[in-house]
């Protein structure tokens, strides 16, 4: 397309069209309609259901095992993990001290979130649906060494309160 064919008026119109969008969006940032900017951290987005955020270890909420951990300490999540995030140490349930339905439970379940790439393989590998990925994404911290937020232990992941 040559410039002569557009003409002067066409050029100005094109400029104005673009500028109007800019102004619309600019206005939107101050609370107008049609906004794409979210006022984070004042306002937070609701993530899609499929979003892969921070992990959580689940419990049975109903049925005969209600209240028990779903995790059986099989370490298949650790085997599936491409980034070697997860460390599981299992132990045997006793009648007095029962954590999970079967014989085995995880006595240690550590996740090193500095390594995690949020690929979701652990949730796919889990045979009991014990580990799921929820929508938390605020995982930063200003310390690398413990105590920090990056090393998640079992008690951090289990019964974890979620922000939204």
């Amino acid at each position: 397309m040559s410039r002569a064919k557009v003409g002067l008026f066409g050029s100005i119109k094109a400029l104005a069209d673009g500028l109007i969008i800019t102004l619309k969006q600019f206005g939107g940032a101050f609370g107008g309609r049609n906004t794409a900017t979210v006022q984070y951290p004042v306002k937070k987005l609701k993530m899609q259901e499929r979003f892969r955020g921070l992990h959580r270890l689940e419990r049975y909420t109903e049925g005969p095992f209600k209240g028990l951990e779903k995790c059986i300490g099989c370490a298949l999540c650790a085997a599936a993990c491409p980034a070697e995030v997860i460390t599981v140490v299992a132990a045997e349930n006793t009648e007095e001290n029962r954590f999970s339905p079967g014989e085995r439970y995880a006595v240690v379940y550590d996740m090193d979130m500095l390594r995690c790439i949020f690929c979701g393989m652990c949730t796919e590998a889990c045979p009991t649906g014990a580990i799921v990925m929820k929508h938390d994404y605020e995982l930063a911290d200003d310390r690398r060494r413990e105590p920090n937020k990056f090393m998640y232990h079992k008690e951090d992941l289990l019964d974890r309160e979620f922000h939204w």
């Binding site: 085997a79 299992a90 045997e92």
Partner: peptide, 10 residues
């Protein structure tokens, strides 16, 4: 070895 020592592949 039972349960506490990890899985064979580990």
């Amino acid at each position: 070895y039972r349960f506490t020592m990890g899985r064979p592949w580990e």
